[in-house]
Structures are given as structure tokens and as C-alpha cells.
């Protein structure tokens, strides 16, 4: 006969045993949503001479591969299979990622409209694009099965990029892509919008790194160096390798 625990120690012991773990369907559902929301494992961002992000050293890669090996291929295969559930191919055709057409032109150059309507070629992971209109239950996003981008239609659901983090990610990816293609003014506008909307966001460190590069590409070497100096003070152990000591806009930004 089970009885109710009485003291804290007993509560703790019981809690360790009874607290819920996610069911397999729930795990698969979340994985599927994550797959739709993000580019899996975007590479370190290299913008000209700026290296934003860190590379994985050989030892760390081995660590990760060891983890992969320990779990086994069947599980990965199952996850990959599950990840495709609920994605409808539009006409069965694959098309290169380019532009998502909106029914109505956006009224202002907000971060989301800039990201959604500009035909920027970016190779560091797809940017999810969605229509904010409440009456449209279907949205266009880009998914990247391997090396080929495919335009597909998925239904808006719990996996829709509705969270602040998803918006932050989208804005900063847009800024990064524009820096890479030389659209520095657009990138700066996106960074400013991120600063305004998410002054204490989860990705402020990345924003700060991108701002340094933007300043450098605008030819504002002194400003870039000052920002870089502040960055190093604020984020002494930052993984983003940002230095503006060799800031040369003609060479593609800060080094």
C-alpha cells in the first residue's frame, strides 16, 4: 500500500522517481517542430575576415561523434523519419530558395518584411518565413533536406516561429546574410530593430558581434574598434571571434 510522503527527504526521493518524462510521441513531435523552425547545425559564420562563431576542434568533434556513435543509427533514422511527418510537398517539385511572395506588400521595412521579401542568397542556413496574417493558416518556409533548398508548405502549428527567440534568430540571420552580400544599410537597420525590440534578448552577444562588423564595413574603423574593445570587456570568454584591429571595409569587414 502506497502512502503519501511526510517529510522533505521522502518527498525528494519520491519526486526523483515519479516526475514525468516525455513520451516518445511528444519527443518526436517536438523534434519535428524544431526541424521546421531551424536550420540544423548552421556553420560558423564567416563574414569576410570576420569569424563570428567558433569552430569545433578535432577533439571536440570526436567527443560529439562519440556521443553520436553511442546512441546508434536506428534512433537517428527514426528521428529523421519522424521529422518529415506533417510536411507537405507543394506539387512535389523542389525549387531553389529565393523569394517568398506575399499577397500584399508590406507597409513598412520592418525586420520581418525585409527578411521575408528580399531575395538574399544565404548559405548559412534557411530563414523561416511566415505570414503574420491571422486569416492564413498556411505559411511558406524553407527547409533544407541536405544541400538543396526546397520550398514547402507546412501548416502553422505549435512549431510556427512565434516565440521571441525565433524572431530574434530570424532578424539576426537576416542581418548576417545582408552583411555577407554587402547590403550593410539593410543589415544595420535589422540590427537596430533587434536592439530596439530585444534590448535584453537571448542573442545580444551575436548582435554585438555583427554590429562591429557592420561598423567596419561602413568604414567607421574607430567606431568598430571601440565596439570591439567594449565587446571584449563585456564578453571576455565570448565564442565569437571578433577583432577590429585590422578593420578594412574593402577587405570585407573586421578581422
Amino acid at each position: 500500500m502506497t502512502r503519501r510522503p511526510h517529510d522533505l527527504e521522502e518527498w525528494i526521493l519520491r519526486a526523483r522517481q515519479v516526475d514525468a518524462w516525455p513520451s516518445m510521441p511528444a519527443r518526436a513531435r517536438v523534434w519535428s517542430a524544431i526541424e521546421r523552425r531551424i536550420a540544423v547545425g548552421p556553420p560558423p559564420v564567416s563574414i569576410g575576415h570576420v569569424h563570428v562563431g567558433t569552430t569545433i576542434g578535432a577533439s571536440k568533434l570526436m567527443l560529439v561523434l562519440a556521443i553520436v556513435t553511442s546512441i546508434g543509427a536506428p534512433l537517428l533514422g527514426g528521428l529523421a523519419a519522424v521529422a518529415t511527418i506533417g510536411v507537405e510537398e507543394e506539387g512535389g517539385a523542389t525549387t531553389p530558395a529565393a523569394v517568398v511572395a506575399r499577397r500584399d506588400p508590406p507597409p513598412a521595412r520592418t525586420a520581418e518584411s525585409m527578411i521575408a521579401t528580399s531575395p538574399v542568397v544565404h548559405d548559412d542556413g534557411p530563414i523561416e518565413v511566415f505570414d503574420d496574417g491571422p486569416a492564413d493558416p498556411e505559411v511558406e518556409i524553407f527547409v533544407e533536406p541536405d544541400a538543396v533548398r526546397t520550398s514547402r508548405t507546412v501548416r502553422r502549428g505549435s512549431g510556427a516561429p512565434s516565440s521571441d527567440l525565433a524572431i530574434e534568430t530570424r532578424i539576426l540571420r537576416g542581418a548576417r546574410a545582408r552583411l555577407r552580400t554587402g547590403a550593410v544599410d539593410d543589415a544595420t537597420a535589422l540590427l537596430a530593430e533587434h536592439r530596439q525590440r530585444f534590448p535584453r534578448g537571448m542573442l545580444v552577444e551575436l548582435r554585438a558581434a555583427l554590429e562591429i562588423d557592420a561598423q567596419c564595413r561602413l568604414g567607421r574603423s574607430a567606431s568598430a574598434r571601440a565596439l570591439a574593445s567594449a565587446f571584449e570587456r563585456t564578453y571576455p570568454s565570448s565564442p565569437y571571434r571578433v577583432r577590429a584591429t585590422d578593420c578594412d571595409p574593402d577587405e570585407g569587414g573586421a578581422r
Binding site: V64, I67, V68
Partner: peptide, 12 residues
Amino acid sequence: IRRAQFADIYAT
């Protein structure tokens, strides 16, 4: 590799 790495982190 990146995809497998992330998938495995998730699974684990």
C-alpha cells in the same frame, strides 16, 4: 555531420 550531431544531442 552537423545534422547527426544535433539530432543526437536532442535524442540524448
